[in-house]
Design a protein around this nucleic acid. Structure first.
Lengths: 341, 341
DNA sequence: CTGCAATTTGACAGCGCTGTCATTTCTGCC
DNA sequence: GGCAGAAATGACAGCGCTGTCAAATTGCAG
């Protein structure tokens, strides 16, 4: 029926344990033996049973991807990350489970316990904003489960992948300045998300560098959602002097700004320049196409997972990689209206 | 260390096998015994080991969600379905794996074999367009793995969930007719997808019912993607007499149509009415908001999974449920330009 | 009460693999 | 050529649960 490790052992003329050693890439197997075993595995189409491995051994070959189910970042962002994580998992013969967490629910840490205890998870991929949830991270540590983070707020002692979002935001706002804008507003993301902080910091930095004043009236709170972008824009439109450009902390909110601009009869970019952050598919589907910062989410999921794999395979400590950003200057930004200068 | 089934047995004063029976909801356990066991499980916080259950028993408590990775429908659509599937799985103490399949690759059926053989998958959720992939379905049958489908083309002998898309499309196009449109174009989805067929059929039916001629020049091929919507619209704009309304087979293509309309300086809905299908988040983020048909994807994922569970639990055959559609008449549709009548 | 079938419970092996520790085989070197 | 030590391999138990089948218990008609 099923080809078992024992069958491979018999076919090769070695003990099951030796086959197990080959399977797990353990040292101290003679090269010639390893080759014979590998050949037999290949020839017999041997596929180890994850259940048996999980039961007998200390590893489950399972990785969980955790994400926040309340303050859900755009689903496209998570979908892309998931895709990358999955690819890296499969390439390393690991399986992936997805695990939405409702951090607002007091009990959410129990879900993590259950996940780790039930499935014997080997490692975890943590996505924003969970990357900065101390209760979660502490619990993972207690369980002894290693994790890799995607865009974590704190960089020390963390592995995974990040992007210099502050620099990117600064560069983006710098471009607005170059276009001639002097009154640039910003829509914040959810308060304690790293993304919000960095993007705000980059915004401030760019203003300072351009010698422009930081005007608190031009900074309004958003929630990373489309709807919050609409509301924030409406609020900005109440200012006695309108901004000539709005930098929203992500694309969804930028889309909301453009929607609100349409609602108010403002033409983008003639009357108002708009830019976002992330370069989700939405960015190029809007009219006019949205100026934004490309964040290679899929790649980031993959890289973070690869770093986790390094740890799981005991090949090292794992690194916090930094991926490059790239500005996507598109048609939603342009020179400010002449009257405004 | 870990609470095992044996520990619960000892605490209750019964044999491990009896505890196992309670765990698996098997019949022929005295009610009083069941209660005592359940109480002990609860009190000791017993959590069965999936690995051990999978190894010893015939069930793995694992469900796989399959999706096509070439002709990828909008990721938001899949993300919503996944969310629903996951919810239903968790509610039934099942775990879910996601499994992208590249059907264009000759070898894709091997991936299915591997999935089923390795993980001993109990059941499968199949999403469009895999729902109609005969090679896949045959293979699942050979493996004896039951599946539930989401929006399958063929309804006979299938369980899962569907929507009367043809009726929905007919109703939607009917609304365009009511608004006064006489020249209504349609952008097709990928040829052999059920969604494409039904939506085209509904379009034709509505035309017939309104006594309008079916004009092949007004039906162009799309691929369900935003970009293909742009191309299709540009093609329609080459017609000597422009259509006054375009019904795209999904929202992404409809967004493409609106983009192309902007590009050509056509104002929606003044010069052109546009509508789509699915009611993805995109629909309300466009300007003007898109008229479309709401498809409750998340709910559909959940319902299909529940039907699968019925089968897995041996409680019946499972049904093919039908969920209701609902028209979302928004601002992308309006009366045709007076000159065009 | 007894006998027999139906109900409820338990003993035991084994699912396919890995951890531990013992054993064998191979080195290099005096 | 023989020996210590390293390298390679194997024997065996057992991970936590369920399937099979046998045993004990119960219910009920006669």
């Amino acid at each position: 029926m099923r080809v078992r490790l024992e069958d491979v052992a018999r076919a090769t003329g070695v003990s099951p344990k030796t086959v197990s050693r080959v399977l797990n890439e353990e040292p101290s197997v003679k090269e010639s033996t390893r080759q014979r075993v590998l050949a037999a595995m290949e020839q017999m189409n041997y596929r180890p049973s994850p259940a048996a491995r999980g039961l007998a051994g200390s590893r489950s070959f399972l990785v969980a991807m955790l994400y926040d189910n309340n303050d859900n970042p755009a689903s496209t962002y998570l979908a892309e990350i998931q895709d990358g994580v999955l690819e890296a998992c499969n390439a390393n013969r690991y399986s992936m489970m997805v695990c939405p967490l409702r951090t607002r629910v007091q009990d959410f840490i129990r879900r993590v316990d259950a996940l780790v205890a039930d499935h014997h998870i080997d490692g975890v991929i943590v996505t924003p904003p969970l990357t900065d949830n101390t209760a979660l991270l502490r619990r993972l540590k207690e369980h002894g489960v290693p994790h890799a983070s995607i865009s974590p707020l704190r960089h020390e002692g963390t592995i995974g992948v990040c992007m210099d979002e502050q620099q990117a935001a600064k560069a983006l706002v710098g471009e607005l300045v170059k276009l001639g804008h002097r009154r640039i507003a910003h829509i914040l993301g959810i308060a304690d998300h790293g993304a919000s902080r960095w993007r705000l910091a980059g915004y401030k930095e760019a203003l300072a560098e351009a010698g422009l004043p930081f005007n608190p009236d031009y900074v309004v709170q958003g929630q990373f959602t489309f709807g919050s972008g609409v509301l924030a824009a409406r609020e900005l439109f109440l200012r006695s002097t309108l901004p000539t450009a709005i930098f929203a902390a992500n694309d969804d909110m930028a889309a909301g700004v453009m929607w609100a601009a349409n609602e108010r009869g403002l033409k983008v970019p003639r009357d108002l320049s708009v830019c976002g952050f992330d370069d989700t598919p939405l960015a190029t589907q809007l009219w006019p196409p949205l100026t934004t910062v490309r964040q290679p989410s899929r790649e980031m999921g993959k890289l973070a997972t690869q770093q986790l794999m390094e740890v799981l395979r005991g090949r090292g400590e794992g690194l916090l990689l930094q991926v490059p950003y790239s500005l996507q200057m598109r048609e939603s930004t342009g020179a400010p209206p002449p009257a405004a200068i």
